[in-house]
Write a protein that binds this DNA or RNA. Structure first.
Lengths: 255, 255
DNA sequence: ACGCATTTGTTCGTATGTATT
DNA sequence: TAATACATACGAACAAATGCG
């Protein structure tokens, strides 16, 4: 009853087989990676997928269940199963963990500082798995929190993106965009972030960073280095944020 | 076919019913909370539970599935399903996210500084949901990383525990214990941590903290404030850690 | 070394409930 | 109301891992 042909050359030490639902899951991921279904769109119904893959509906369900818990897909009873997108409010704060200490909802404004193409520095190239001398796009921006009548800088973000994937990303296009940056990446560059790893440290503000964040040199800042991945565990964004945590904190849930 | 009686007075706005497997899940949690099965022990098999609750095995499975993804239970094929414990290496680092920058496995030594009973300070009492003037236990300790031939302090931890739950927790008992502290709490005080919330900030080292961590005053430190919960979402530990992140970092996974 | 019983893991099928359009 | 889609629940069978005799 195998709908999916077994791998041609099973690796001896690795598990030589995988459960049907894992194979289905892999096929769904391939479809997502190939752009068959785009963020926000519905994938075919469970019965339809079951028919296509020649497996039972329950097996498809189990594959989708896992993708749903990984936030790759979103199930909606009565409507269908949808490709996750960074457009929704819900998924909005999955990647931004900085919250105001007073419990108010996060409301940060953006201020774009820079966007330029360059050869990727060696460290950046290594982390993004780029060849030496390959192009990269660097973006710099501030996030500001309303503070009484004016705005207080809270986050200084430095991003590096693979130049080949983000051809045509300019200051103007970034400036014109209203909405989450990851949504822009989805809509205009077909790059969807599904996962990220972050390394957090406490550092002292350097002169230039201090000036931009409007804090004294030496102020303790939360350094957040993020490597974000798209389908197939391909790293597609390196981000270094400096968070001024005087009135904000980084929230994390352990379980 | 309802094995579990429906709630007597369904709240109008809230979902007036709950799926069978959710009811089973609640019953399992009640059993865990009541100490029917202790950390490390196996719970009854799926068929046995199905018979006890008068539901199908699949329904029990789904309840256990959720508890397993929440790390409350651990499934082991061929052996059974076990109550999660902080004794195992696997669950060891679920709550300690500090890793050496060089990628080596974490190997921290403990040095106990203090353990005393006191009236809970108001802020501590509030977070631990204690009454005013109720007893608390405060613990202070250092975590040190091997650095060449000697040890370098990396973490300064301050803990507060409800005095009523931790009657008899002394410096000597802490000192004598070999193994994770959360395991000691399980084994000797029947308090099992299943979840925690953390707030991270960058702060400057104060004089006393700086001395203990062997860093200059003003050194940026990562402040980690943790509130840990046991079954039934009861907060049972407040912890404030100061991490020296010169050669270590706090790792987080976003998905 | 072998087989057997136990337990979880996978897969199928079917029926019914609930939400949406 | 009807059609569609996901959600819940049941039952059955076999596979894989484990431990014991």
């Amino acid at each position: 009853m195998s709908a999916v042909t077994a791998p041609a050359a099973p690796v001896p030490q690795a598990p030589a087989f995988s459960p049907l639902y894992q194979q289905i899951k892999a096929l769904l991921l391939k479809g997502l990676e190939g752009g068959e279904w785009l963020p926000g769109q519905a994938i075919p119904s469970e019965v339809e997928l079951a028919a296509r893959f020649r497996v039972s509906q329950g097996t498809v369900r189990k594959a989708i269940d896992e993708l749903a818990t990984e936030n790759v897909l979103v199930r909606r009873q009565g409507k269908g199963t949808f490709v996750a997108t960074h457009a929704e409010q819900a998924t909005q704060f999955r990647f931004l963990r900085l919250l105001p200490d007073d419990g108010s909802p996060p409301a940060l404004q953006r201020r774009l500082l820079e966007c330029r193409r360059m050869r990727a520095p060696t460290e950046v190239a290594r982390l993004l798995a780029l060849g030496v001398g390959e192009a990269a796009v660097q973006v710099r921006r501030l996030l500001l929190a309303p503070q009484g009548d004016d705005l207080q800088p809270v986050v200084l973000d430095d991003l590096w993106l693979p130049g080949t994937l983000f051809k045509g990303l300019t200051m103007e296009r970034l400036q014109a965009w209203r909405g989450p940056m990851y949504r822009l990446f989805e809509a205009q560059f077909a790059v969807h972030m599904i996962r990220a790893e972050e390394k957090l440290r406490a550092v002292a503000a350097q002169a230039d960073d201090a000036a931009l964040l409007a804090v004294p040199v030496g102020t303790p800042l939360l350094s957040v280095e993020r490597l974000a991945y798209t389908y197939g565990d391909r790293p597609v964004e390196l981000r270094r944020g400096l968070y001024h945590t005087a009135a904000h904190h980084y929230r994390n849930e352990l379980s």
